[in-house]
Amino acid sequence: LTVHVGNVTYHFDNPEQAEEWAKRMAKKYQGQIHVKDGQFRIE
């Protein structure tokens, strides 16, 4: 699973971990989480 934050990409084996990280990053950067094809993108 991949989480994109700006132009930085993080890889996770565990979906719960990826989702948790995406939520934390979205809160930190006050962005929206977009989920597409098993990838999380924070914008």
Rank of each mutant, 00 (worst) to 15 (best):
L1W: 15
L1R: 10
T2M: 09
T2L: 12
T2W: 09
T2Y: 08
V3S: 00
V3T: 01
V3W: 01
H4G: 04
H4I: 14
H4L: 14
V5Y: 08
V5G: 00
V5E: 00
V5D: 02
G6W: 09
G6C: 15
G6I: 05
N7T: 12
N7R: 11
N7F: 11
N7D: 08
V8F: 13
V8P: 01
T9C: 15
T9W: 06
T9R: 07
T9S: 08
T9P: 04
T9M: 11
Y10D: 00
Y10E: 00
Y10C: 11
Y10R: 05
Y10W: 14
Y10I: 04
Y10N: 00
Y10L: 03
H11W: 12
H11L: 10
H11T: 10
F12A: 00
F12L: 01
F12S: 00
F12I: 00
F12P: 00
F12V: 00
N14M: 07
N14G: 04
P15H: 12
P15F: 15
P15E: 08
P15L: 14
P15A: 11
E16P: 03
E16D: 11
Q17I: 09
Q17S: 13
Q17A: 14
A18E: 01
E19K: 10
E20D: 11
E20C: 15
E20K: 12
W21Q: 01
W21A: 04
A22N: 01
A22R: 02
A22P: 00
A22Y: 04
A22T: 02
A22L: 07
K23D: 06
K23L: 10
R24W: 13
R24P: 00
R24M: 13
R24L: 15
M25H: 03
M25K: 01
M25P: 00
A26D: 02
A26L: 05
A26V: 06
A26S: 05
A26N: 05
K27F: 10
K27A: 14
K27H: 12
K28D: 06
K28Q: 07
Y29S: 03
Y29P: 01
Y29I: 07
Y29D: 02
Q30G: 15
Q30F: 07
G31K: 05
G31E: 05
G31T: 10
G31A: 13
G31W: 11
I33E: 02
I33L: 11
I33W: 07
H34I: 15
V35K: 05
V35F: 15
K36I: 15
K36S: 12
K36V: 15
K36Y: 12
K36P: 03
K36N: 10
D37P: 00
D37M: 01
G38H: 04
G38N: 07
G38Y: 02
Q39P: 03
F40T: 03
F40I: 15
F40H: 04
R41F: 15
R41C: 15
I42N: 04
I42W: 06
I42D: 05
E43L: 07
E43P: 03
E43W: 06
E43A: 04
E43K: 04
E43I: 13
